[in-house]
Amino acid sequence: MSRTLEVKVLRQADPHSGSHWETFDVAYEAGMNVTTVMQRIAANPVTADHRDTTPVAYDACCLEEVCGACTMVINDRVRQACSALVDTLLADGAGVIEVRPMTKFPVIRDLVVDRSPMFQSLKRVKAWVRVDGYYDLGSGPRVTRQEQEEAYPLSRCMSCGCCVEACPQFNDHSAFIGPATISQAVLFNSHPTGKVDRDDRLAVLSGVGGIVDCGNSQNCVKVCPKDIPLTDSIAKAGRDTTTYKIRQWFGR
């Protein structure tokens, strides 16, 4: 006998409408994830009480948890729909699969939210290496294995938004720039060439919405799907902004 999953989705027609729950019955398949659930709903957009509806709008791209697109809140935890396996959700004791959009970004439709503020913040902290140009000027700076091993985990940030979703300080009333961006600033400040812009980045992190707004709840590091040591980055940024401010004090 085929099993059926009860799936609840918080739907919203557009940025200006209110939201409401819709429930779907979806046939269970071995190994399925929440993205597959959305695909099955799209192919048969009928609610559990037999009303015709529209397919759920959702983001999905790589389905391997490297692009960050399909981030949403599933059974009260922010995560990627692609790596949210139904079997795991059921084993965690959930009778129902409950899906809603992230709450820290404006909803476009259903589960699609506008995360462009994350990319804007990357501009503010100059999250790039300012090279002289793209002609061949020989190899890059020598980097030790240890330095690479410190940089690589930070460089895996896919701007998915999990950390800011879980962060109590990142909200409508605060200008907090968020853990992901702080960590990127730390990454580029540690690069032999990237550090020429170090003080510009530290100026941003020292300003409004910068490092002092972190409430140290440490939620970010718990939800990061890539296990990025975000709290280490924040601690490092804290120390660096302090020395930066002292240097500013002495006019250098």
């Binding site: 290496v129 090279v131 061949d136 190899s139 890059g140 020598r142 030790t144 294995r145 940089a151 460089s155």
Partner: peptide, 22 residues
């Protein structure tokens, strides 16, 4: 080789040998 040089300069965290080469 030119493409690799450029990527290296842009900060791609390529794996390194113990001596620090790519």
């Amino acid at each position: 080789p030119r493409v690799i040089h450029l990527l290296d300069r842009l900060g791609v965290p390529f794996n390194r040998t113990p001596e620090g080469f790519l």
